[in-house]
Design a protein around this nucleic acid. Sequence first.
DNA 1: GATGAGAAAAACATCGATTTTTCAGGTTAT
DNA 2: ATAACCTGAAAAATCGATGTTTTTCTCATC
Lengths: 226, 226
Amino acid sequence: MNVIEIDTVSNEGSATQRAYQLLRHMIVTGDLKPGEKLKIDGLRQRLDIGASPIREALSLLTSDNLVERIDQRGFRTAEISSDNFEEILMLRCTLEDLALRESIEKSDEAWEEKIVLSHHRMQRAKDSKSDTFEQLHKDFHMALLANAASPILLKFCSQLYDLNIRYRFLAGNALNYQRRDVGDEHKGILDAAIARDVDTASERLLNHYKMTGAFLAGLLGSGSLT
Amino acid sequence: MNVIEIDTVSNEGSATQRAYQLLRHMIVTGDLKPGEKLKIDGLRQRLDIGASPIREALSLLTSDNLVERIDQRGFRTAEISSDNFEEILMLRCTLEDLALRESIEKSDEAWEEKIVLSHHRMQRAKDSKSDTFEQLHKDFHMALLANAASPILLKFCSQLYDLNIRYRFLAGNALNYQRRDVGDEHKGILDAAIARDVDTASERLLNHYKMTGAFLAGLLGSGSLT
DNA sequence: GATGAGAAAAACATCGATTTTTCAGGTTAT
DNA sequence: ATAACCTGAAAAATCGATGTTTTTCTCATC
């Protein structure tokens, strides 16, 4: 048993997990374009992972709505459309509202400390590489909901978050995103959550989504993404 | 369009699709018990399908929350618990309410005809083999929602339906289920939907779920399923 | 009688090769 | 000119074999 950790990132976990993470990242960030055909052989070479793990990873992504599987005809990345975007936005508002209320209702000190911490980490990374910021941004939003004792609901929220962020990346993320006063919005949500003010927190959270949503919907409508 | 028996699935489509359908059926009906280890080799022999398609099918089922994957340690069916059941019930009520309202709002004659037809088919199969009835029962419920132009929402509803029906099967489905006046409840929902009476339809639908839910929650609480 | 090391067995994960299916282009018949 | 029909290349799906990890079992030791 040789414990030789040469390449921590690329060699830990199963090949399937690695393929899943890599592919998801590539799709969400737009590295693989909407509707693009995903040829097994091409990906096999590009990721240096065998066909079976790639196939399994793509099957997993299918259920995340990031990949479509066409029987006997392979896989392709999910298409984008303004209808699709609006549905995601609508569902996020409904489900995150639900989750946030439950999360705050069950709140305790440990949870409070976690959201403060993840907010701080996100703030600190405001100007760093967008990948890092985006991860911390997701962490913050999921931390807000994390106290809801509803695993399925949280899974839905996480999926919808990724579907949504994909549109943001496709629109050229950081550029326009951090220009609005998102910092203030996050602080506002955090404060209301700490104060256990459910209604205010929820209202601010949904507003936060709808603002970004309206902006992206504009882009989609104008056809600059298709 | 022909109403085909489920058994005809044996040779059509890809091996992965077959494995997926078969396994899902086996899990939902309780043929594979909650928490049971799913040994690839055993399933390979039992279904007469190679390991790769089975693996892929299990990956798909993982994202349906019917199977859990433990890295490097294989697959097992999802556990059951009363918490899990209550979450499913809660989410179904929220999401189906949403979908039903949108579906009725966008209603047209074609949709109206479809729900009448699927209701009739379900009624006709009331006394037949439970598998057939259950399929038509799901068809009816999904037909009610089908007009909602929200593919993701419908997918969530379908997933939650399967998660829920699993509990019904585990409780010894048909036995107690058809004893209550479920026929009347269905008719009531159908009538309200045809009349485009959104509030009544939604109220009846949710009641329909909560009645079954309360019964099953009782069983779960008493520990007769665990 | 409990414990823990180490070996054997089982099961998982992955790869390479083979089979099956689809797709594109050109050909023939109407 | 168009539609139906081949045909070969490309890709997907699947199988069988192989390498690794986990689990089980044995047996000596405390």
